[in-house]
Write a protein that binds this DNA or RNA. Structure first.
Length: 291
DNA sequence: CGTTACACCTGAGGGC
DNA sequence: TGCCCTCAGGTGTAAC
């Protein structure tokens, strides 16, 4: 679920809970697909560490620790990173929520999907990482080491230029939609914001990337930045699982022009929004506004 | 090298 | 009500 705006909003709200804090205790679930670093090793390595900075690279978060190691986090499709003092209806199924006491409903209660919980010195709330589908990832990077997942990322989508996009697209005959989703080309755009940026730029998602003209790359680069910045301002898109770290919903889902709006009238021209499948990802566009 | 198909995992919602 | 199918904001890998 989370794309660049959701990860950036998460970073801004989680940073004050983590930075300068010493990790007092670490709670995890059993080993799984989710843990690139085995949970037992993770617990040993993290306890006693103090967090320096919390940075974002595309959709990845990177926490630097006082022993020069770094903790790499990815939210996958259903990952949620939040403060333990929140209570949000998105965090529990209705049946699970109904079984809690009123006191428990006011704070977060760890469940089987709560894969990582950091207790911090200083009396603040815990930092919780919950992920139902476990497509999210946790990886501890030893001092001085990196990871291919980070190294292969293209320029951050908030800073990408038309020239960078046009150059990267030269040998790319596939759909421009797939091109925008390629994290090695630009880092941070996912299915929602690719569709939204293509709409704003007036470009059809199925057009070959190498058949997009220079003027259109300029509009696309602007549209990508505009859409992402506006989403960050509104707190991101809360469509199914995403919540802000403080438990509130984002607001960008109400500003979508095409994503998830198949069959609805285009907000610009009234034509019916169309849905096609491109490389297994559903893609919505306006057949009149986008060429 | 570029591109596609599929796997990874769980839950919600629609159709019958 | 229950079952079965499809779909979901991502990404790594194998295969062409």
């Amino acid at each position: 679920m989370p794309e660049l705006p959701e990860v950036e909003v998460t970073r801004r709200l989680i940073a004050p809970l983590l930075i300068g804090r010493r990790i007092r205790a670490v709670h995890t679930t059993r080993p799984s697909y989710f843990f690139l670093t085995p949970p037992a090793q993770l617990r040993r390595a993290l306890v006693g560490r103090t967090v320096g900075a919390l940075e974002r690279h595309g959709k990845y978060l990177l926490a630097s620790l006082d022993d020069a190691s770094r903790l790499l986090l990815h939210l996958g499709m259903t990952g949620q990173l939040f403060s333990s003092v929140v209570s949000s209806p998105r965090l529990l199924s209705s049946t699970a929520r109904a079984s809690l006491t009123p006191e428990a409903q006011r704070g977060f209660v760890p469940d089987a999907h709560t894969h990582l919980r950091l207790e911090l010195d200083g009396g603040g709330p815990d930092v919780v990482f919950r992920d139902v589908r476990k497509f999210g990832k946790v990886l501890l990077l030893a001092p001085g080491s990196s990871d291919p997942r980070l190294d292969k990322l293209g320029p951050d989508a908030l800073a990408v230029t038309a020239e960078q996009l046009a150059r990267a697209a030269r040998r790319r005959a596939g759909p421009v939609k797939s091109f925008l989703l390629d994290q090695a080309v630009l880092a941070g755009v996912g299915n929602i914001y690719a569709d939204e940026a293509l709409f704003l730029a007036g470009v059809r998602p199925l057009r070959g990337a190498n058949r997009v003209r220079p003027g259109e790359w300029a509009r696309l680069a602007d549209s990508v930045r505009k859409v992402l910045e506006r989403s960050i301002e509104t707190g991101g898109s809360s469509i199914s699982d995403y919540i802000r770290p403080d438990g509130a919903d984002g607001g960008y889902q109400d500003e979508r022009r095409v994503y998830g709006r198949e069959g609805e009238p285009c907000s610009a021209c009234g034509a019916r929004i169309v849905r096609v499948v491109i490389a297994t990802r559903s893609s919505c566009y306006c057949p009149r506004c986008q060429r």
